[in-house]
């Protein structure tokens, strides 16, 4: 009898503590940020995800520390080009994880919505604004029970064609078709023609840079140890992260003609898909901020926007 009383009392106390913590967490999450404004993709903005509120916000690239305007759109990843933007938002409380891929028009209104399994990882829009590409982390289809894998997909804005995963893309390495059961893709980046694209192919413990032709739907391996490629505006160089030790990545730029690699002046580990602000500057998210570093290996990193991630430049 006494034991039962103790058990009941203890359980009520513990569960009460859990409920109190949960309710208090709800209240701190529900606090509102600044009033939402109507943002558009008009040129001359640096858009980003405000890491405090999750809302897509905007500053002037010439005065990134200045006043920021916030939209009502809440995303985990954001990207934009021309008149198209993409927002990846994980559904809160959805188990297994589901991500809403929101294809947005130039007023950030939802043009198309696709609910896909997984957790947001990378998002990009092709320079012509016609293809939206993303990478999601998924669990459960790896044979290590707690293993993770990635799934990269894309959506043609004009035709509405959806490619849920580019896993089936035929890839050649030295003219031989590459076959493996554990193929993972991540970090798609498109060229200005909306046809040539690059992505990371991860398989058997190695990452490879793949160059692919979307129309012919075929790719070839260019190089090893290249992750999250980002093609320069002129289409001649690729900014990427390369793994220097387990879980440590450095930013570098690869010249596609000469295959010469230049390490950038950022000495910290960066786990992001870089973005070209222009032909000579790289933007990336690190430690709750958006940073910039010259693309030629000179200079040093500079903090552009605090409490920000997922930068996107309109122009």
């Amino acid at each position: 009898m006494r034991r039962l009383l103790f058990a009941l009392l203890g359980s009520v106390l513990l569960i009460g503590a859990a409920v109190a913590f949960t309710v208090q967490a709800r209240q701190s999450v529900a606090q509102d940020g600044p009033a939402a404004e109507q943002l558009t993709l008009e040129p001359g903005q640096l858009l980003f995800r405000d890491t405090g509120t999750g809302r897509v916000s905007s500053v002037s690239p010439t005065d990134p520390g200045g006043a920021r305007r916030s939209s009502a759109l809440v995303c985990d990843r954001f990207a934009a080009a021309r008149r198209t933007a993409v927002c990846l938002a994980a559904r809160p409380g959805a188990l297994p994880a589901v991500t809403d891929v929101l294809v947005l028009d130039s007023t950030l209104a939802v043009r198309h919505r696709e609910a896909l399994p997984g957790t947001p990882s990378r998002a990009r829009v092709s320079p012509d604004g016609k293809v939206v590409a993303w990478t999601l982390f998924v669990t459960g289809d790896s044979y290590a029970a707690t293993g993770f894998s990635t799934r990269a997909g894309l959506y043609e804005v004009e035709t509405g064609r959806l490619v849920k995963t580019i896993e089936e893309l035929p890839v050649f390495t030295a003219d031989r078709r590459y076959f493996a059961a554990d193929v993972n893709y991540w970090g798609i980046t498109f060229a200005a023609d909306g046809n040539r694209f690059y992505a990371t192919l991860g398989s058997r413990g190695t990452t490879r840079l793949v160059e692919a032709d979307y129309g012919r739907y075929q790719g070839k391996v260019l190089r090893e140890n290249v992750e999250c490629p980002s093609l320069s505006p002129d289409g001649t160089r690729v900014a990427f992260k390369k793994e220097v030790s387990d879980g440590v990545w450095r930013l570098a730029v690869l010249d596609l003609a000469s295959m010469v690699e230049t390490e950038l002046a950022e000495s910290r580990s960066v786990d992001d898909q870089a973005l070209w602000q222009d032909g000579s500057t790289i933007l990336y998210g690190l430690d709750d901020g958006v940073w910039s570093v010259p693309a030629d290996g000179t200079g040093g990193p500079r903090l552009l926007v605090e409490n920000a991630a997922s930068p996107a430049v309109t122009g």
Binding site: L14, A17, A18, T22, V23, A25, V29, A30
Partner: peptide, 16 residues
């Protein structure tokens, strides 16, 4: 209930 707070999941898991 917690509007997506992971710490709440861990604290609740500990209490359970």
């Amino acid at each position: 209930v917690s509007l997506g707070s992971y710490p709440s999941v861990f604290v609740t898991s500990f209490c359970v």
